[in-house]
Design a protein around this nucleic acid. Structure first.
Length: 174
DNA sequence: GAATAGATCCGC
DNA sequence: CGGATCTATTCA
């Protein structure tokens, strides 16, 4: 597999909405101890700070969600209902909470997209132990290369609060 | 210490 | 539609 150039951590030092939209079409590389997996990001959602009622930062400021206050590019993983690992990349700036949830991607070498943060986390071998890793480090990398895809903007899915906010970005499949 | 809620997925 | 299963908050 040809090596790709990874973006620096400060690439994520922008608003969560901007970063979430930017990530669609880029490649995410995940390296475990034994395997290296690349996936084309197809679907993301932005989660903000206390002003966003759907964000963990708003109603669960303690615990793992405090990762959302850390440096841009920090990896935040939480287990939904204790079963499915959901992968987030922290955005904004240090001290300002915000993260981008990766909801869908297509593994390199395959044709079928993986939709749903839980299924994607399992497919990439992500688990809560990756909490605190950095997206510009050895375990997680995002490519500089970005495919020009048509991106649809829709309300977020699977949440009960803040559903009216159009913070979901999904690549239109042809 | 006990009860509750949640950014999910699968099966019937 | 309901269950599986974990984490963190809230109340007593």
């Amino acid at each position: 597999m040809a090596s790709f150039e990874a973006v620096p951590c400060d690439h994520f030092a922008g608003s969560v909405v901007e970063v979430a939209r930017d990530l669609v079409g880029r490649w995410l590389k995940v390296e475990n101890d034994t395997t290296s997996t690349s996936a084309l990001i197809l679907e993301t959602e932005a989660y903000g700070g206390p002003d966003d009622p759907a964000s963990h930062a708003a109603f669960r400021p303690g615990g793992r969600a405090r990762r959302m206050w850390e440096r841009p590019g920090t990896i935040y993983v939480f287990a939904a209902y204790g079963m499915y690992p959901c992968l987030n990349i922290v955005a904004e700036t240090e001290g300002v909470p915000g993260a981008v949830l990766i909801r869908g991607a297509r593994l390199a070498g395959t044709e079928q997209p993986i939709l749903g943060p839980g299924k994607l986390g399992r497919a990439l071998g992500v688990n809560v132990g990756h909490n605190g890793e950095v997206c510009c480090g050895p375990a997680f990398q995002v490519s500089v290369e970005r495919q020009e895809l048509q991106i649809d903007v829709t309300p977020r899915i699977g949440i009960t609060r803040g559903v009216e906010t159009l913070w979901r970005f999904i690549a239109a499949l042809e």
